[in-house]
Each structure stands twice: as structure tokens, then as C-alpha cells.
């Protein structure tokens, strides 16, 4: 068995700003070659955690090791080996794409993958365009290219798909996967649960600076108690569904029903049997799984009720 190589080790990390504790006793590791997601609502401590890993902010307590380096003490070496796409940053408005690529390439010793990136990200047609004239999606591509010019071993992406339309977001995911396949480990923060679900190999869920869950999206979702069946029918009554065994709750909107149950297979059988006996019609019957969104809401509820 190949031993697991840890690219990032975080041990009991904490960070305080005056009175506020932004990060509390956070511990996790990131393995080489994975896409590691940090999710949580705005203000959960995601960006602070990322900036500590990047050596931009100092930790108040605990230990952090990135690529075997101390982020603050060995910052220069770290900066040669990591790439960072910051949240909501810009390059000079009047700088053209190709000028930015040339400039950033000159920061690194050795050959960069400038031409490969131009091709991979489809930047050819935009090389002579000024940054201020690019749309949001193209700006993200350019800053992603600038962060990955030197083929970093570790790539940090802070809310990379913020403000992108669904199509551009999917394209971005494909690019991130390609970068991973080319050998980078990727740490991405997001508050889009769908992004975490579809893109990440493992997900750390952070809320109020604390780690609430850490697992693969699939296994996290298996914990969700919100699995349900969904169907449409004009004839079925709400009460008759609620009286079926194992059913926890029923949601009805127009003709669409969501039936939550402890035992989905059994409940589905009961619904079909009932409708068959009564001669009722069912349409678009589906087994649905809760999303990370649901899981998140679930955690927050637990938090509030204690």
C-alpha cells in the first residue's frame, strides 16, 4: 500500500481577532492529489483558515504545516510552490491578459505552463483584451491561470465560482479537475453546497470557526436523515400518505408530494400498493437524496436546539 502523503496538516488551529474567535480548535489533513472542500456560510472562518495556510495571517494557536513548511516562517519557499486565487481580487484594470500572463510568469524561476494554460482555458481569443473589459467568467479564468502558471503543488481557490452563471461554473469545475489530474492538490472554499458535492473528494464543514463534519460528500450525505420519495398526483390525499408506516412527514405543493421516511423502499412499496388498489395515478416517481444543503440546515438546526 502506498502511504498517504499529507500536503497540509492542521492541528488544533485557532485564530482570534480581538474579542472574536474566528477559528476554534480546527484539526484536519489534506492528502496529496485530492480536491478538498471547505464549506460553510459567509463568515464561518473559511477565508481566515485559508489565509493562515497561505501564510498571510498568523495563527493564534495550534500548528500548521503546508508542504512540510511553516507558512509564516518559510513564506518565500511556500510562495514558490503554491498558487492562490483570492476572493474578489482584480489585476490592473488596463492590463491585457497576455501582459498579465507574462508578468506573473516572470515571478517564477524555471519554465511555466503558460501556453498549455492558454489553450486549456481557451484564453487565446482574449489575450489582447484588457482585464476591465472581461466578463466575470473570463476574469475568473484569467486569475485561475495566473494562480497556476508555475504548476503549483498546492492550489488554493477561495470561492472560485462566486458570481458565475451555472454554465460557467460547470466549466470551471472541469478546469479544476484537469488541474488536479495534472498533479496539483486543490483546496477550495465555497458556500455553494452543490459545488462541494460535485467537485470535492472530501469536504470539511465549518460553522462559527469550528469543524462540524469532515468526510467524502457521499458519506456525509448518507448521514442525512432527509431522504425522501417525490411524485406527482392529483388524486392522492395528504392524510392517507401520512398514515403509511415509517413515514416521518409529508410535504405537499400543488400536486407534488415529498414523502420523508425511515425506510424508503418500504414506503415506496406502500404508496404503489395503495395507489394501485385505489386506481390512482402516479407520475414522475423518484427516490431523492438530501443534498449537502439539507445536511447543512440540519447541522444549523441541531446547533440552535442544542
Amino acid at each position: 500500500m502506498i502511504p498517504i502523503e499529507h500536503v497540509i496538516k492542521v492541528n488544533h488551529l485557532s485564530k482570534t481577532f480581538g474579542e472574536t474567535q474566528a477559528v476554534k480548535n480546527l484539526s484536519f489533513t489534506v492528502e496529496k492529489g485530492e480536491i478538498f472542500g471547505i464549506i460553510g456560510p459567509n463568515g464561518a472562518g473559511k477565508t481566515t483558515t485559508l489565509e493562515i495556510l497561505e501564510g498571510i495571517q498568523k495563527a493564534s494557536g495550534g500548528e500548521v504545516e503546508v508542504l512540510g513548511l511553516h507558512p509564516v516562517k518559510q513564506l518565500r519557499e511556500l510562495n514558490n510552490r503554491i498558487g492562490v486565487q483570492f476572493q474578489a481580487t482584480s489585476i490592473q484594470k488596463k492590463m491585457k491578459v497576455k501582459e498579465a500572463m507574462d508578468l506573473f510568469a516572470s515571478f517564477y524561476k524555471g519554465k511555466t505552463q503558460k501556453n498549455e494554460l492558454i489553450e486549456m482555458l481557451g484564453l487565446q481569443e482574449k489575450l489582447d483584451v484588457r482585464f476591465e473589459d472581461l466578463s466575470g467568467g473570463w476574469k475568473q479564468r484569467v486569475t485561475l491561470a495566473l494562480a497556476t502558471l508555475h504548476q503549483p503543488e498546492l492550489l488554493f481557490l477561495d470561492e472560485p465560482s462566486m458570481g458565475l452563471d451555472p454554465h460557467a461554473r460547470r466549466e470551471l469545475w472541469a478546469m479544476i479537475r484537469t488541474l488536479r489530474d495534472k498533479g496539483s492538490t486543490i483546496v477550495v472554499t465555497t458556500h455553494y453546497m452543490e459545488e462541494a458535492e460535485k467537485l470535492c473528494d472530501r469536504v470539511a464543514m465549518i460553522y462559527s470557526g469550528e469543524l462540524k463534519a469532515l468526510n467524502t460528500p457521499n458519506e456525509l450525505l448518507d448521514d442525512v436523515s432527509t431522504h425522501y420519495v417525490r411524485f406527482e398526483s392529483e388524486e392522492v390525499s395528504y392524510d392517507s400518505l401520512l398514515s403509511l408506516g415509517d413515514v416521518i412527514k409529508v410535504e405537499k405543493e400543488e400536486h407534488e408530494f415529498k414523502v420523508f421516511s425511515e425506510n424508503l423502499q418500504q414506503t415506496a412499496y406502500q404508496i404503489f400498493k395503495y395507489c394501485d388498489e385505489e386506481g390512482m395515478e402516479l407520475r414522475n416517481f423518484k427516490f431523492e437524496r438530501g443534498s449537502l444543503d439539507d445536511l447543512f440546515v440540519q447541522y444549523l438546526k441541531k446547533e440552535k436546539t442544542g
Binding site: 501564510g55 510562495n79 483570492f86 517564477y108
Partner: peptide, 16 residues
Amino acid sequence: GYRETGVLRRYQSTPL
């Protein structure tokens, strides 16, 4: 202005 719009921050995690 560069400080405000994040231009300098973009340089921060490079060897510059």
C-alpha cells in the same frame, strides 16, 4: 487603488 481593489493582494502569494 491597487491596495483597495486587491491588485497587491494578488501579488502577495507569489514570490514577488
